[in-house]
């Protein structure tokens, strides 16, 4: 009974209002990188932005519960998980209703195989749409930081991939182990080296991950006319 009350308290605390929550989709395969990555990321969001998310990372399986969380993180290592038809339908409904799915290839398995699996996965959810390269001048690259480079712990591609539905990126795929850049050890040191670019690559990965969350929360906000002028002025100082 006590457990039940504690559970309710957490559920209520995390659900309230429209606050962003980081939700990792659980599946049968390896589904998340180093545990500290996500916590560090959320702390960073807390310190640097007004998103102020709860620091607790939620891990859920695909079910009706996903409809409480518009932002979903799907990490995988090795091979892409094989979701049931029912799970795919739920995901499809979620994304069509305004949800956002970030797929992160935590570690490569074989060159290109993961990307192909993501393509097949996306085809099952959106048969009429294609996974495409996201242009580097897309609003994702302006949503908080200006022009972050496509990055991650292991840089394999200079592009993000995504499914664009009615002008909105509903699925974004990073092949570079994006959240690997956030992992720290107990002493606070970064756990993994960023290959091949080192620390500058890590900084770009930090910026990009913030931008992706910000994009999921604000959409094409930074494309509004009022912002364009300022952004252009700032870029001139680069």
């Amino acid at each position: 009974m006590k457990k039940f009350f504690v559970f309710l308290f957490f559920v209520n605390l995390l659900f309230a209002g429209d606050r962003f929550e980081f939700v990792i989709l659980k599946h049968k395969n390896f589904y998340k990188g180093h545990a500290s990555s996500y916590r560090n990321f959320l702390e960073y969001l807390n310190d640097t932005t007004s998103i102020d998310p709860p620091l607790k990372v939620k891990e859920i399986e695909i079910g009706e519960e996903i409809f409480d969380y518009p932002f979903l993180y799907l990490g995988a290592k090795g091979s892409f998980p094989d979701f049931s038809r029912q799970s795919l339908e739920l995901l499809s409904r979620h994304l069509n209703s305004g949800g956002f799915l970030l797929i992160d290839e935590i570690e490569e398995y074989r060159q290109g195989e993961f990307l192909n699996s993501v393509k097949e996965f996306c085809k099952k959810i959106f048969p009429e749409l294609k996974l495409e390269k996201i242009p580097n001048d897309d609003v994702i690259f302006k949503s908080f930081y200006l022009k972050p480079k496509v990055s991650g712990r292991k840089l394999k591609s200079n592009f993000l991939y995504g499914i664009n539905k009615d002008g909105r990126w509903v699925v974004v795929f990073s092949p570079n182990d994006l959240f690997g850049v956030w992992a720290r050890d107990e002493e606070g040191k970064f756990l993994f080296e960023c290959i091949p670019g080192g620390e500058p690559q890590r900084l770009e990965g930090i910026k990009l991950s913030v931008n992706l969350v910000m994009y999921s929360l604000t959409g094409s906000y930074k494309q509004d006319i009022i912002h364009r002028k300022f952004i252009e002025m700032k870029l001139e100082t680069w």
Binding site: F20, S50, I51, D52, P70, M214, L217, T218, G219, Y221
Partner: peptide
Amino acid sequence: GRPGWEYRNLRA
């Protein structure tokens, strides 16, 4: 006052 789902949906 901050980015959030209500903002995202209402803005859209």
